[in-house]
Design a protein around this nucleic acid. Structure first.
Lengths: 348, 348
DNA sequence: TTGTATGCGTTATCAA
DNA sequence: TTGATAACGCATACAA
């Protein structure tokens, strides 16, 4: 028997299971069986012929055709509110890795500016027979839940809860993170705490963090606490609020509810000419690569983003394998990264 | 005629073209024609019946089946060296937007750590019949070019050239950006310039920037210039190099070849206790959200990332529509964002 | 143990 | 202008 040629290097019509069958002198069914249930029912000699033919032709099955036939596509859909958000990307990265390891590919849909297109995204993805969905969105699209239900495919929510969606939920322990941050500021001697957040309306993550902050302050009589909702277009408002905070004459500190807010607070503090850790204590939720570089270094709560992505995928895969339990909640703890922005208030 | 019920809200087997045909009392072929070539050859009355049936059933075609039949999938594959890289993400965002507008969906493959899997990525994506590929990778996988050629599908390269790949190329004008940065430092009176880059071996982007920097310095006798390749694990080396630079007693400035290097330089400068714009001039290629916040604010060259992504997609779509011209190069200019890190050297 | 035939949801080629 | 019918590439019930 002469050695078989290497996989054809020329572009051409797709090599199909029929080509392999012909070359091996067997039927298509035999080839298919070799591919799917290699172990059972196969004469070694035939198996070898098929194997050789596959190698010779450089055959690989068409996932499209397989999907059409078995209704499973080895595809997972990921809907992201905003790919520009580093948090989303970090999660995405973990999810993508886990998918690849499990032999799945990720189809990405970015909502960009308008969260209203969530339903559209879900349907577009579903039409490609994605086997499951990972949603990292605001959940503001009324139709989304219905769209998901209609598809009857498993869904896992990351970071944001959706009011009326039955699904697994994977997220940072928001309450714990807020407590951890506030607790750290307290330990460091800061006693007038301002929680700065993006507008909370309808966003579970922000609400949970804020509620935990208030509860924490409520449980510690020596602390004074307040919340400020910072709008993107109102830098002046934030600056004024910081002024008021410091004017109260206690030991003032800010707890930023996420990286976007951290950026805004840094900007305001720079304009005010204040120094973190001196004029103002600071802890921000979300670790960033630049946190060590701003001012004396920013104390942060790091989210286990990679783990979140991986866990989200893991949940989904379990469901795909038939796991049938009520919706689960997986809350992962944050990690306090201490830098100088929260250095002891008494040191000033 | 009674009003048709809304799209079925229950999960169930997919509604197919056959269901529509039956409900409308026509053949599948007719429905298909209505869908694809609505205008020609259709009795208004029949068209209406079909339209009504489609609405009643909430039918939408299966892209999978369509792909199988026509060999076109409305899918575009995106291979990214590292989703963690903000530059890649920014490009990804532009590309994704353009894809959606054109009715395409993006399949994402992240190489993560090992750039050796490029071939694997291309083949995985190709097996899903992606109509074209956008590659933002290092091009270190020998097999990649061959894999692309074999698929016979259009490809566009973003940011990184690949030695032996025939493809459109979309990128920042690297040489122009380096000149712009060096020119700005020179105008501001800095005259001892250090170009800091990640190891250049085999990465076109880095090489082009460095070459343009050297050429610029060569053309200006009053300038002294040097290049330093900074490895991720050699913070000490960078610090030592900066010390030497300043020890020469001229007006020293750093040109960081990308955001990763900017981060490293900031870190080193913080450890040295130097002040940007005073002890050291600085311009970095790549604008970041945190550039305004570090030290006195970092001067940067902003890349038109969104435009790059959109253009890459546009190139691909043109090819898909049959455009047949030799590989093109599209180079977009950077934009200088002046902040205080490059303030006049003579001011110190 | 292997082969034949059918269907997944479309589109396209033919007749009618 | 419309309707059968045959692919597309694969998996599987059934027959051999």
């Amino acid at each position: 028997m002469s050695p078989t040629p290497p996989p054809s290097p020329v572009a051409g019509p797709r090599v199909t299971i029929a080509d392999v069958a012909e070359k091996a002198g067997v039927s298509k069914a035999t080839v298919s069986r070799f591919l799917n249930r290699r172990d059972e029912l196969l004469t070694p000699e035939i198996a070898q012929r098929v194997e050789a033919a596959i190698a010779a032709l450089g055959y690989s099955p068409s996932p499209m055709a397989q999907a059409l036939k078995r209704g499973r596509s080895r595809l997972i859909g990921l809907v992201v509110a905003d790919v520009t958000n580093p948090y989303s990307v970090a999660v995405l990265r973990g999810a993508e890795k886990a998918c690849q390891e499990a032999g799945y590919l990720l189809m990405l849909f970015n909502l960009g500016d308008d969260g209203q297109r969530e339903r559209e995204a879900i349907e577009a993805l579903a039409s490609y027979q994605v086997e499951g969905l990972i949603l990292n969105t605001l959940g503001r699209d009324e139709g989304a839940a219905a769209a998901v239900a209609r598809q009857g495919r498993p869904v896992v929510l990351v970071d944001r809860r959706h009011a009326d969606m039955q699904a697994d939920f994977v997220s940072l322990d928001n309450a714990g993170a807020a407590r951890m941050a506030a607790g750290h500021l307290r330990e460091q001697g800061w006693d007038d705490l301002l929680f700065v957040t993006e507008p909370m309306a309808g966003v579970s993550t922000r609400q949970e963090r804020e509620a935990a902050f208030r509860a924490f302050v409520g449980g510690h009589p020596e602390l004074h606490g307040a919340t400020f909702e910072s709008a993107a277009d109102d830098a002046a408002g934030l600056e004024a609020e910081l002024r008021r905070l410091r004017a109260r004459g206690r030991r003032p500190a800010v707890l930023a509810s996420n990286a976007v807010i951290t950026l805004r607070v840094c900007d305001a503090v720079a304009r005010l000419g204040w120094r973190f850790g001196h004029d103002l204590g600071f802890v921000g939720i979300d670790e960033t690569e630049w946190a060590p570089l701003v001012g004396p270094g920013l104390t942060t709560i790091a989210q286990p983003t990679d783990a979140l992505g991986r866990l989200a995928t893991a949940c989904l895969l379990e469901r795909l394998q038939g796991l049938d339990v009520p919706p689960r909640q997986i809350l992962l703890p944050g990690r306090l990264v201490v830098r100088r922005s929260s250095a002891r208030a008494s040191d000033q």
